[in-house]
Design a protein around this nucleic acid. Sequence first.
DNA 1: GGCTGGCACTCGCACGAACAGAGTGCCAGG
DNA 2: CCTGGCACTCTGTTCGTGCGAGTGCCAGCC
Lengths: 340, 340
Amino acid sequence: MAHDERRLEVLRAIVQDFVSTNDPVGSKALAERHDLGVSPATIRNDMAVLEEQGYITQPHTSAGRVPTDKGYRLFVDRLSAVKPLSAAERRAIERFLDGAVDLHDVLGRTVRLLAQLTRQVAVVQYPTLSRSAVRHLEVVQVAASRLLLVLITDTGRVEQRVVDSPVEVDAGAVAELRALLNQAFAGVKLAEAGDKVPGLLDTAPQHLRGLVTTVSTTLMETLVEPSEDRLVIGGTANLAHGSALDFRGSVRPLLEALEEQVVVLRLMSEVDAGTVLVRIGEENAHEALTGASLVTVGYGSADRPLGGLGVVGPTRMDYPGNMAAVRAVARYVGHLLAES
Amino acid sequence: MAHDERRLEVLRAIVQDFVSTNDPVGSKALAERHDLGVSPATIRNDMAVLEEQGYITQPHTSAGRVPTDKGYRLFVDRLSAVKPLSAAERRAIERFLDGAVDLHDVLGRTVRLLAQLTRQVAVVQYPTLSRSAVRHLEVVQVAASRLLLVLITDTGRVEQRVVDSPVEVDAGAVAELRALLNQAFAGVKLAEAGDKVPGLLDTAPQHLRGLVTTVSTTLMETLVEPSEDRLVIGGTANLAHGSALDFRGSVRPLLEALEEQVVVLRLMSEVDAGTVLVRIGEENAHEALTGASLVTVGYGSADRPLGGLGVVGPTRMDYPGNMAAVRAVARYVGHLLAES
DNA sequence: GGCTGGCACTCGCACGAACAGAGTGCCAGG
DNA sequence: CCTGGCACTCTGTTCGTGCGAGTGCCAGCC
């Protein structure tokens, strides 16, 4: 029926108006601002149906309607065309990200860019270690029985760990160890590095056995330890804007959850390069994120995403715009990290 | 005179009460809560004088008094004894910071700890490069004419830069280069590294001249570039608490300034290990920090501070408590980084 | 059958008056 | 020099009222 068709159109109009004005939207205003071709009275009837179906709700008996989480969900799934970024925005992305000097810088710029583009809180995950490969391992002696292990990955990430050796080590042993480690691990995917350890222990000369064992253990901890999956967060100032109203009362729990990182990291782990994932309000299991929406996507080549990035904001957000921004930035960052 | 004596006592009482209650404090309440030994009427007279001298002010004609920035200043300089941390707090510091695995982890824990201890926004500066010394330089080949330069300092910091060589480089050259660089720079303070470049160029074998020149240039950029003086920020959730009232209207400018980092970094550059520096409200030149106070101190050994750390909060803060916390944490972090 | 204009109704909210409470400044007396 | 008392000045709050926005429903129209 053209009936349902129009009703969805009404929902779309409600979402759009509410997102841009933050006021519950009434039938009269809707009829004026959109060419729906029908009168306010008809729109009222449609709205009554939409409300019954749970897509919209009215905060007070005599106020306009506001989309529910379910309404936003429908909007995102069926009603919103991802709007392409403007040429100016594309240029901004390039200008912003080019000239980054190292990984930290790339991610820092990315998060600032994303925050600025979307006016939301932006989140960028460090490239997951397990999916990168070892480019180089460096061993530096910092004391008689203490070594600093530095791991450099092909995504430009650098990890370091202090290793306390059970015995004193001399310079020659350090050089040997370095050669051994690089021979064993260079080019190996971190996820598969564990498999190489037995072979390494076999080939290690007798006098290095103990040392190699100790170092390997620490190395494995470094690789497996997920605590090192870090987040870069930016644009929290955007929360202070008008959002005190968007988030029932306080933004505090949200800020705490963001600083905690662990919640967001778990959500990030589900991303998939290429398809933008939107989580709306109550769909987020974690309590602090109720009332917030996340727009995330993976970056890196489609078959092996390196990490995730996205934005966090009130459910009342510009989904099409944010989805477009997140996708565009992810694509660009993916290229940037792939080539370096 | 015992006169002035008591007047200062009144100021101290006003600051203490106002900090803990956030209500303008009146003469009657003061007399009740503190043993000043005089009647409210007398206190009123003292308050009139204090107001005339600019230490306190009343927000409205018939409200209690509130300390001015000048009042807080006097309180901090003359009236507040730094209160020692409780044993539980000391234990918390140790428990929190021990077990950190690398520099990033140390600073991350530090900032969380400080935020938790003071219930303010905490800021920790990465150890300044120029005051550390080179522990090791690593050169890794990532493409025919592209090298990755990794600098490891004695404070555990790792910096990396990509260097594009004008000519293709072979593995032997990389090894030679590595040896040359380490011979020239190992143990050298970064601030003095520039002086070593000419000597390095002289001793470099002919076929490496060009490469060494390129690499040295990048290296110098890395060392001098202050953009890499980074901050770790935490506890921003504490701003969302009641502080909407403390900061006239909005915390937004403050959050923006914090993310900007540059303002805070400049303030941090003035720190001095050992003495806690307090900047109150209007004393901060930068506009966004008007209305905020900073409590900062340097960490590292007294003669050469590695960096600064501190907290940012409303002028209405517990100065003695925050000063104590900041100092204790700085001391602990200083030890931690010195020994590693 | 679906759309439209009209109408009565319901609330939230802004505005204004009245009020209570807190705090002050000043003065006269101890 | 301190103290108790007193008149005065505000602010924040509470309560009523009127207005406007928006709704649901109904009868009529295409």
